[in-house]
Amino acid sequence: MSGPTTQRLEELGLTLPDAPAPAANYVPFMKSGNLLHVSGQISASADGLIKGKLGETMDVDAGTDAARTCALSLLAQVRNACDGDLERLVRVVKLSAFVNSAPDFGDQPKVVNGASDLLVQVLGDKGRHARSAVGVAALPFGVAVEIEGIFEIE
C-alpha cells in the first residue's frame, strides 16, 4: 500500500527489506492492544550481515550506517505486522539498542543516532521516541548493532 510514509521512503531513496525471519525460537513481533513490540533487528544489508566491534574494527560512521539498517528492518517488521500498510503506524514509542563495543568505547548514543535520525527523517514527529543505547561485549553472529522497538499502531 502506498501513502505518505512510503512516498517519503522513496523521496529519501530508501527501500525497506523484506521483514527478516527470526534466527531462533521467537516471533518477529507481538501485538498487545495498540502496541507492537518488534524483536531485535540485527545490522544487515543486501550484501549480508554487518559485523564488527565499535571502537575496535569499526568507527562511529560505519556503526551509524549499521544502525540505519536496523531501523529499516524495524519498519519492515511494522509493515508486515500491519498487513502491508505502514500508514497504520501512529508513532515510534521506544527503541532499545545494543552496540557491539570495545571495552573503552563510549559513543553508543552517536551510533544509535543512525536509527533515530532515519526514523525522524521518514516519519517526522511520529518518529521521535524514547531510547536506550547500550554497549555490549558481543552480539549474535558478530553483528555491530541490534535494535528492538515498541510502536503504537492503529
Rank of each mutant, 00 (worst) to 15 (best):
V38R: 01
L123W: 09
S45H: 08
A24P: 01
L118W: 11
T5I: 15
A24V: 06
T5P: 09
V145G: 10
V112F: 09
S73D: 07
V134P: 10
V90I: 08
R91Q: 10
Q108V: 13
M58H: 09
G114K: 14
A23K: 07
L12A: 07
E10C: 10
S73K: 03
D83V: 03
P103H: 03
L72H: 08
N25Q: 15
V111T: 10
T6P: 08
L16M: 04
E154R: 09
T57V: 09
M1Y: 01
A138I: 01
M58Q: 14
L75A: 00
A81N: 07
A24G: 14
M1H: 14
A19L: 11
N80A: 10
S39V: 02
S101P: 01
D47W: 13
A71N: 12
G48W: 06
E152F: 06
V93I: 02
P28C: 00
A66I: 10
G106R: 11
G149N: 02
T69M: 00
A62F: 08
S96Y: 01
F105T: 11
A144M: 06
E56L: 15
A19W: 05
C82F: 13
I153K: 00
G3K: 00
L49P: 02
L74G: 10
R68G: 04
S39F: 00
F98Y: 12
T57N: 09
V38E: 09
V134C: 01
N113T: 06
E146C: 03
G13H: 10
D47L: 06
I42D: 02
I50W: 01
R68Y: 02
C70E: 00
A137P: 02
G48P: 04
S32H: 08
K110G: 04
H129S: 08
G40Y: 04
M1R: 14
L16W: 09
E11S: 07
L95T: 14
A24L: 02
I150D: 13
F98K: 13
L89D: 06
A133Y: 02
V136S: 11
V122P: 04
I147V: 03
I147C: 03
D83E: 09
V145W: 08
G135T: 07
F29K: 13
G135I: 05
K51D: 04
F29R: 11
V78Q: 02
